[in-house]
């Protein structure tokens, strides 16, 4: 995959953004974090492409480092609104506080801020995987609507799939830490993520399409 192809494929998240813009006013608020995050992801994809083109690799790494934390916050927020922490706001804030501390620590350890915070990425992906699976069991399986029409089914499944492969690829990179690896190998590992990203973006788009509109009440009064 060349950079351009990867970039174009990653724009698939744009579908979700477009659907979100069209439907935004008429959907339940509990889906808002999902759309906010889709917009941010799209932005990040575009900016990182520009940065790579300009060979500003350090800046790109810093941005991705920050984005990981933002992603964690928005996904946990989404799960929180769907009832993962039993609507307990304190717990939600507490978890994010811990994540922030970890992010801070792993931004400077074992390498500097301009290097990928690999440990944080592995941890946050694992945490999100657990959260996603729990939410899946709690919200999706309990819902008696058909699964294929359930937007939460598509969205959570997308998250599970993405972070499984993400984790796989990241732990692989982590195990190569300190070893002098070739560029192709690093690219190859990245590609595992790219392909799963593509599938998941399509699933997100399907999920976004499934989100029901809030019913209009043609006034009886």
């Amino acid at each position: 995959m060349t950079n351009e192809v990867q970039f174009i494929l990653s724009l698939c998240i744009g579908f979700t953004v477009i659907i979100g813009i069209v439907k935004f006013k008429r959907i339940d608020r509990s889906y808002y974090p999902f759309f906010y995050l889709a917009c941010i992801s799209l932005l990040v994809e575009i900016i990182s492409y520009v940065l790579i083109e300009k060979e500003m690799y350090d800046e790109k790494t810093v941005m991705i480092n920050v984005f990981c934390f933002i992603e964690f916050v928005f996904y946990t927020w989404l799960f929180h609104l769907w009832g993962l922490f039993n609507f307990n706001r304190r717990l939600f804030i507490f978890i994010n506080l811990i994540a922030f501390l970890m992010w801070l620590v792993f931004s400077f350890y074992p390498e500097g801020f301009t290097k990928p915070n690999m440990y944080f990425r592995v941890i946050y992906a694992t945490a999100l995987l657990f959260f996603a699976v729990t939410t899946f069991n709690k919200v999706v399986i309990q819902d008696r609507a058909p699964l294929f029409k359930n937007p939460k089914f598509w969205i959570i499944l997308g998250i599970i799939i993405f972070f499984s492969f993400y984790l796989l690829s990241r732990t692989a990179s982590l195990s190569l830490f300190g070893i002098d690896t070739s560029r192709q190998l690093r690219r190859g590992l990245q590609e595992v993520i790219n392909y799963s990203n593509l599938i998941v973006n399509l699933m997100f788009a399907i999920g976004a399409l499934c989100i029901p509109r809030k019913k209009n009440f043609t006034g009886l009064f």
């Binding site: 690829s169 070739s182 192709q184 190998l185 190859g188 590992l189 595992v192």
Partner: peptide, 8 residues
């Protein structure tokens, strides 16, 4: 590396 990648 190729072997490693294949394993992955």
């Amino acid at each position: 590396e190729e072997e490693f990648y294949r394993a992955i």
